[in-house]
């Protein structure tokens, strides 16, 4: 069971949380949004192999929504941040992870 760090409560077990899908998908205004843009907002998600920014809710704790960057292969949480904070640079985070991994490989 994952240990997820709620930005408000601290580390808590996965069963206290609910995944709420990909983060930073802006809700369009009714005016001036094409059907294709609306379909993309409703249905299209990135589904990457690697880092993804996601919405989570500490539903059985403080009940707050927050965002997190998680690695979809290892399930490791890289960072958590509050709603409204800018999206982290996923490429930079991925590079950090790769450098960390290389350092550990070299260290053994």
């Amino acid at each position: 069971m994952l240990l997820i760090t709620c930005p408000i409560c601290g580390p808590r077990p996965e069963i206290e949380f609910r995944n709420m899908g990909e983060a930073h998908i802006a809700r369009p205004t009714p005016e001036g949004t094409s059907d294709d843009d609306m379909a993309a907002f409703l249905y299209l998600r990135s589904n990457p192999k690697g880092l993804i920014a996601e919405r989570w809710r500490h539903v059985h704790g403080c009940a707050r929504f927050f965002n997190a960057v998680r690695h979809t292969v290892t399930d490791k949480f890289v960072t958590v941040y509050e709603v409204g904070a800018p999206k982290p640079d996923l490429a930079a985070l991925a590079a950090d992870l790769a450098a960390d991994l290389a350092a550990r490989e070299a260290g053994r």
Binding site: R27, R55, R57, V59, A63, R64, F65, V83, G84
Partner: peptide
């Protein structure tokens, strides 16, 4: 309730 909280906390802050 979750649907309402979602819009309240993330959309209409």
């Amino acid at each position: 309730l979750s649907h309402m909280e979602d819009y309240l906390q993330t959309e209409w802050t």
